[in-house]
Design a protein around this nucleic acid. Sequence first.
DNA 1: TTGTACGCGTTATCAC
DNA 2: GTGATAACGCGTACAA
Lengths: 342, 342
Amino acid sequence: MENEKKVTFDDIAKYTNFSKTTISRYFNNPDSLTVKNQDIIAQALVDLNYHENKLARVLANGKSEFVGIIVPNLYLHYYAEMLNQILNTYEQFGYKFLIFASNGNSETERAYIQELLAYKIEGMILLSHTIPSEELASYQIPIVTIEREDRYVNSVNTDNYMGAVQATSLLFKNSCDVLVHINSTVQKDVPAYGRIQGFQDTCLENRIPHELIIRDLGHSHQEIHECMLEIYEYLKKTYPNQKKGLFLANDTHANHMLHIIFRDCGTLPDEYRIIGFDDSPIAEQSIIPITTIGQQIGKIAYEAMELLVTQMNERKKRRPKPQTELIHKSITPILVRRETTD
Amino acid sequence: MENEKKVTFDDIAKYTNFSKTTISRYFNNPDSLTVKNQDIIAQALVDLNYHENKLARVLANGKSEFVGIIVPNLYLHYYAEMLNQILNTYEQFGYKFLIFASNGNSETERAYIQELLAYKIEGMILLSHTIPSEELASYQIPIVTIEREDRYVNSVNTDNYMGAVQATSLLFKNSCDVLVHINSTVQKDVPAYGRIQGFQDTCLENRIPHELIIRDLGHSHQEIHECMLEIYEYLKKTYPNQKKGLFLANDTHANHMLHIIFRDCGTLPDEYRIIGFDDSPIAEQSIIPITTIGQQIGKIAYEAMELLVTQMNERKKRRPKPQTELIHKSITPILVRRETTD
DNA sequence: TTGTACGCGTTATCAC
DNA sequence: GTGATAACGCGTACAA
């Protein structure tokens, strides 16, 4: 029953006998008004039931306070939780998030970026890995990537190498006779390659007998299970009566391997030690809670936003200095000891 | 090195000797131009490297094509996957999504809604349950809620009652001697209450011996585990030598219970049949794949958007007719048979 | 088929 | 401390 017309600064100005300018100042620089006049305007706001229009403000001052995000999907817990933590930075930085899920298609991803640009986002965070960083850099807008190839853009990544070192060292200390790292093919320029490198280096340095099993493990539950079964049979045959330390590429794989061993032996025998990566829920919820390398997702999200905000602020200055050097932040993961290691 | 100034319709107009209006038409109603002139403008666009500004368009025509979303969190797979599916409707409907995670705090949630309104969202989808639907309805903007109390707003929910009927019937057909439903306290006005009601009604109708165990099961992994352990001991003592059909409130709980039984017996004995709810990843990834009631998340998301789009379109008409009756859509879940039932 | 003139709601500039 | 006026980039009667 209230009049549906939206009330604007003009209406408030007329109602209070101030000018539009003063009303605008009330919002953006209240201290430049007398306290008395602030009260008058505050009262008018409620009398007229004013609601602000931030889009009009964007058109006028160019600051949208939008950040665009592209995730591959939200099915995997890692992406979901990362997005969650990014959203939580709203309290700190005040940026709003426009979000797309690319589902791994680079063409639609390009379309999404265009759409984001059309809505005047001030910066962008990418978790997807379909578009080369060189192309991303060409968009001339602040960008931070997370855990993907990042040669030409700023980024925040988990220190995968250190994570692998921690995992490998723990298995070594558990006095395993042979260490095995199981992973799928991963390009050398993506951060996750550090898991392989860290494992190898640590084994070599300490002269630990080890084996690297790299193969396409598939994606469906069924496929992964069959691959793991094969690998299990192989290990059993190849290293009989030896204590095997298994470092899996992620918790999902670790969970599969644990199940296979558990169903074969009725328990996890001392002959096997297992460690995963990610600290996803499955690690804690498995039949035996799995030791894992926990990525500090909250910290990664925060650092990414901070890095982005710095760039966005620089851009708002009268004479922004172009960034001269790329920044790659590295966040050390944390060893989460549970019951699949000693 | 290109000129940094953004090029506008004015620039294109001068470049092509058309008027701004014609340029605008090129985008919004291209068929009203001759094909030849379309080509001229198309060429000018690339010559000048034009980039559209959709915010300016919003200010002019009032249609933001923004939909606001508030989720409680993205830690739980259910919310993450629902958001995922909602994002995917972009291909169908073209609406962009502004997203907040409320973390269950109603005060910040209200602030988020204000922020969304300030950015001229055309509608809103709520998965959170902190604000009563009556208050939501007062915002005078198209709203659809998903799986929460919905007395005063449009909504899409899983048919929890039918889900429970399916679960209960299956356990009955598995010739269990006694059926048990384990759940935490749930208000009668939230959709999930149907799980309890459906269980009871089915048992009563078929004169099946049954028991309803309602108690606060806690939230941490540890808490849930301890509660389940207690319940297991109780069931073992109370129904010895009887085949027990266990219908758990969700897959996480089902997984806990399965583990407890499995570790006690070394397997899942015929004496126990288990069924969960949600078809979350844990159900498939458990030591024995768990039979569950699968919510059709993709369908729910689609129906929610469709319902919202209908309302938003109605609003854009010259004389919108106010909605007279609330719409509550109900999506039937699907029984996913796995190995914890016969 | 195309053009003119004004409006959308706010901020910035420069006066007073 | 406050006000007039011109942007910001695009859409839309209405006119031609």
